[in-house]
Design a protein around this nucleic acid. Sequence first.
DNA 1: GTCTATACTTTGATAGAC
DNA 2: GTCTATCAAAGTATAGAC
Lengths: 204, 204
Amino acid sequence: MDPNLKPGNTKMRILDATAELFMRYGYTGTGLKQIVADANAPFGSLYHHFPGGKQELGVEVIHRSGAMYLELVTAVFDAAPDIVSGVHDCFDGAAEVLRATDYADACPIETVALEVASTNEPLRQATAEVFESWIEGAAERFRTAGIGDRTARELSISLIALLEGAFVLCRATRTTEALGAAGKTAAAAVEAALRHVAPESAQP
Amino acid sequence: MDPNLKPGNTKMRILDATAELFMRYGYTGTGLKQIVADANAPFGSLYHHFPGGKQELGVEVIHRSGAMYLELVTAVFDAAPDIVSGVHDCFDGAAEVLRATDYADACPIETVALEVASTNEPLRQATAEVFESWIEGAAERFRTAGIGDRTARELSISLIALLEGAFVLCRATRTTEALGAAGKTAAAAVEAALRHVAPESAQP
DNA sequence: GTCTATACTTTGATAGAC
DNA sequence: GTCTATCAAAGTATAGAC
């Protein structure tokens, strides 16, 4: 880890503030002035730490948020007694966070991903890399549970799609109904995949 | 239908242009100047037809795009020999459109929904109404096939979440892999629900 | 109703003093 | 490295001639 990124650091505060603003207002909706205001940083230091301006800051925030979210989900799975419980915990936990933050904090990169997909190639690539890391992170876990390569990847993609799609519905409707329904479907999909695993290698 | 909305109409052209721009660049990323330019309309007529400015235009576009997309999906299902085929056709068709438009045209309101969820209440409400209409439209079809009320709604929500989530992944990665995986999971979920339907009332 | 010109604000970005 | 002042451009919105 970069030792220059101590908490309380100016650069660090800028990164954290940007991550939170991106989650709520998206990339285009977040102004640099609002970022430095929230980070209690002078305007000039933003361009000192990120000479590439908003885009460079955006790329760094995407990668950072993506890595943190992966860690978070990994921790939830590690704490769960089995994979299916882990899936439930993820969706339930997301619903809890969403409610607690007045339906503001869902996925840290989803909004940005959609905004930049057709307009900003470096940012688009950053979001793609994050999603790929999530997919492979989940797939690895499913393979360890004995699920075949191809199924593991398809299953991972489907779970992430269910989560991201539910985030859209929940934030729009200001309810957690969608996360509940999607969580059920996700758990069922994992159970179905585990049912096809040879019993001796199964780790439910 | 409002007879004033003939094709070629100024108002109509503004609505169409805005819908397309929202899909690619989102709400914040779309400027009014760009809208009137794409619609071949003078700037003043935008505020003549939409006195409420960008927000009023946005609400109308959301409702319009939502209704059109519902019609489109309904037509796909009606043309399919059975429900499971209909699900496959939807995901396959979406993938085809995405590829044909260089990964630009996915869901007409998803990006906007995420952008405005925490910032613009009238727009947020419009997106919520559209999603609710989609959910109930799908649920109605599943109930007709004999699936119970509660399951029909949960299934509908999950399918829409899978589709919206896959859109994010596909646009970010510029591949259609996610729509393929999500489509498989969606079809499997419908099949599982149909398996629990009493045989005499089943309409597969 | 159509269209042009313009007002006002905010945006991302830069220069340069300290 | 920190911080202030300012720039040019783009944003939404309005006024008013035709």
